[in-house]
Design a protein around this nucleic acid. Structure first.
Lengths: 346, 346
DNA sequence: TTGAATTCCGTGCACGGTAACGGAAATAAT
DNA sequence: ATTATTTCCGTTACCGTGCACGGAATTCAA
């Protein structure tokens, strides 16, 4: 059985009033050192734990958390991330939290800056962000820190020291895992890496670490593997088939295909039309389109994270910090890498 | 911004008092039909949502939930399940919940019955159970239903209609997935299925469904595969090596090994000593011993669930039902099947 | 010593909901 | 018509914490 120790119990035991105990608990001063120590001692003795419900009820404030992630079309990676907001809002402990999504164009640095400014002027109590543009993000979190606003990273993080928490995938390991799944531990002769051509140099692309992990693995386990690259443009999906077709006639022996971003579904149409025996295609993230391709057999395996859960957890961590001043157990939270085949895609 | 509508608002709008509104909200009678309808209409109109914190604070009861799962040694499947209790107790919404584990000997029907009786006489407010013995479990849940005690299944469920929720793995599909990972979509010639010999017939073994899924897959994709069985006794681990060795000399061509329970680690020592090129070993569940074997390379892949999370979720669902009368969104919750290789075993 | 300025602390209401208690109103029994 | 029941509803005291307000106790200035 649990005994409930209240601040009133503490007040009585220390010969003071609950007001004083409260001031001690929240460090809001106006307490003599003697009383402070006394109260602290009693708290220790009785093993006081605050009643979360009463606390939240009494401090009946509305907080707002801004979520700064790109806009995206339905089914895309960032749209799934966005769903994490509703996922979190449906939990009982998030009443009293207003979570607002501040979107921007993933490929437009200016729009990112604008979104940052918008967040700053709404003066939120907490911020969740994916640091897409490095220098701009650094400036932004600097301002947040100056304004005493806690923030959490999702997807990727910056190397600084003021963030409350980070939720993301271990990128290097995900690349290794990808290579392991592709090769199945055997030596393979060749592989095609499909990439998306980028213009903006400041755009921070965490997938480079993934590629590095992949290449590390290959260097160690398949040093003599031919690694081909093919660059495509997602804004012109109709040209992709032609590019793949061209590559396929030039290198008909290639049986392994990977992509390190979330768009493996882009190659699915070509594969569906030109399937060859023994083809292995490995990609990332459980977008609807990717899962559909998986189920059709165009994609062999997907390595998935759960971006919605990451966002939800980030919001939750921030909520607990804001309302209860509770810091997360771990600051860097590496989420599990899910392997999806057509048999466990749910 | 959220406007907070309280029962007092409703009371005022309907010209009644909060006592009456409360009676309506909780269906505890003593309200005329006219008033009832009136209040209900206002609730609809204003879109009232109860304040969870206030509710939990006011009804300041201590509830107890009994968790009826087998005792197990550290690192074993049921011990991981047990950890779900602490996992759940650490969440803020579970204060006021006393969760007690009632253990029994997995392989002893009498001990299971005794545990059931123990649970009944402690009159808990909710029960989480894994229905290990079918007929005995049916009788037990019958008594729970009669006593109006809600209960949730974990791991496997019975075909009856009174349970609040079920959390478990889709067993048939897990068998298919296992086969798919083992064969990698190719035709294989032979496979060894290692099984544990059972004596007790009433013991309900959900793994038969897993085996069925596996065999289904093989029948469809590898109809001419030789399927060998080997029965071992977990209480005499020292004999296992001899049995495997014997099998290996009789069938040296077999390169694929599976087990459908969580004890794949039992074959790891033999494999470590007698590793052959191209061997594939697939098992279930992320026990410490299994993961260790995975990392050493004795096991190729593991299909894992998260028994602790299942138990935690079951407790949470029961808590919400008991305290807030909230039913779960889905009654049958099939957890995701995790595929583990040495690169994502964390 | 007296008054003013601090420092420190207790009191009391609020938060939204629960449920026991008792009384008014409506109905039934005499 | 009067009393006894039953039905229905309002009042009220909590649950444990947050916080504003004002007053007592102490220190400082004169």
């Amino acid at each position: 059985m649990k005994e409930n120790i209240t601040i009133l119990d503490i007040a009585r035991r220390s010969g003071l009033s609950k007001g004083t105990v409260d001031r001690v608990l929240h460090n809001r001063g106006e307490v003599s050192k003697k009383s402070y120590d006394k109260v602290m001692r009693v708290i220790e003795e009785l093993g006081y734990e605050p009643n979360v419900y009463a606390s939240l009820l009494a401090s009946n404030k509305q907080y707002t958390i801004a979520v700064l992630i790109p806009d995206a079309a339905p089914g895309e990676f960032w749209e799934i991330s966005r769903r994490g907001i509703d996922l979190e809002l449906s939990t009982p402990l998030s009443s009293g939290m207003n979570v607002v999504h501040v979107g921007y164009d993933q490929y437009d640095g200016a729009s990112f800056s604008a979104a940052c400014r918008k967040v700053l002027e709404m003066k939120p109590d907490g911020v969740v962000l994916a640091p897409m543009y490095k220098s701009e993000s650094l400036a932004f979190v600097g301002e947040l820190a100056a304004a005493q606003i806690p923030y959490a990273y999702v997807d990727s993080k910056l190397e600084e020291d003021n963030y409350l928490a980070y939720f993301g995938m271990p990128m290097v390991q995900s690349g290794q895992l990808c290579a392991d799944l592709l090769t199945q531990g055997h030596r393979i002769q060749s592989v095609l890496i499909v990439r998306i051509r980028r213009n903006d140099e400041d755009l921070y692309d965490p997938n480079v670490h993934r590629r590095a992990g992949f290449l590390d693995y290959m260097l160690e386990h398949c040093p003599d593997c031919n690694i081909h690259y093919l660059f495509i443009d997602p804004t012109h999906p109709e040209r992709i088939d032609a590019l793949l077709s061209e590559f396929h006639s030039a290198h008909p022996e290639v049986r392994n295909v990977v992509m390190f971003n979330s768009r493996i579904y882009l190659v699915a149409p070509f594969i569906e039309k030109n399937y060859v025996e023994g083809l292995r295609v490995v990609g990332f993230d459980n977008l609807d389109a990717n899962v559909a391709a998986l189920k059709k057999g165009c994609v062999t395996m997907l390595i998935a994270q759960h971006p919605d859960q990451q966002v939800a957890q980030a919001i939750q961590t921030l909520s607990e910090f804001i309302t209860l001043k509770k810091r997360p157990a771990r600051r860097d939270n590496l989420v599990h890498m899910d392997i999806l085949t057509r048999y466990n895609a749910d």
